Computed example of a mutant assay.
Amino acid sequence: MLHLATQAASVRYPAMAYPVTGYAYEPRHLRFIGMEAATDMAARGIGTLEEYLGATETD
């Protein structure tokens, strides 16, 4: 996940995140999310876009 932060991307449906995303692991689904969001997710240890968006809504 950390190397994706340098590319401003995120794996959309990471392994073991089915309860959060509702989708099985799909490594080919990468999403450009921007450098700021990608590095913030990596620094905070957030693995899914759903968790990140939920975490940033209340910040």
Results as ranks from 00 to 15, higher is better:
Met1Asp: 11
His3Phe: 14
Leu4Glu: 07
Leu4Asp: 08
Leu4Asn: 07
Ala5Gln: 01
Ala5Phe: 00
Ala5Lys: 00
Ala5Val: 01
Thr6Lys: 06
Gln7Cys: 10
Gln7Asp: 06
Ala8Asp: 09
Ala8Trp: 01
Ala9Val: 09
Ser10Leu: 06
Ser10Glu: 05
Ser10Lys: 06
Val11Phe: 04
Val11Trp: 03
Val11Ile: 08
Arg12Met: 14
Arg12Cys: 12
Ala15His: 10
Ala17Ser: 14
Tyr18Gln: 11
Pro19Met: 12
Pro19Gly: 08
Pro19Thr: 15
Gly22Ala: 13
Tyr23Leu: 09
Tyr25Glu: 03
Tyr25Arg: 02
Tyr25Val: 01
Glu26Ala: 04
Pro27Val: 02
Arg28His: 10
Arg28Phe: 14
His29Leu: 05
His29Asp: 07
His29Ser: 08
Leu30Ser: 03
Leu30Lys: 05
Arg31Trp: 08
Arg31Tyr: 10
Arg31Met: 13
Arg31Ile: 15
Ile33Phe: 02
Ile33Ser: 06
Gly34Met: 02
Met35Gly: 12
Met35Ser: 15
Met35Tyr: 12
Met35Asp: 15
Met35Thr: 15
Glu36Asn: 11
Ala37Asn: 14
Ala38Glu: 07
Thr39Leu: 10
Asp40Val: 07
Asp40Phe: 06
Met41Thr: 03
Ala42Pro: 01
Ala42His: 02
Ala43Ser: 08
Arg44Asn: 05
Gly45Cys: 06
Ile46Phe: 10
Ile46Met: 14
Ile46Ser: 13
Gly47Val: 13
Gly47Ala: 12
Thr48Tyr: 00
Thr48Ala: 01
Thr48Asp: 01
Thr48Phe: 00
Leu49Asp: 05
Glu51Tyr: 10
Tyr52Thr: 05
Tyr52Ala: 04
Leu53Thr: 11
Leu53Lys: 12
Leu53Asp: 12
Leu53Tyr: 10
Ala55Pro: 00
Ala55Trp: 02
Thr56Trp: 07
Glu57Ile: 10
Asp59Glu: 10
Asp59Trp: 07
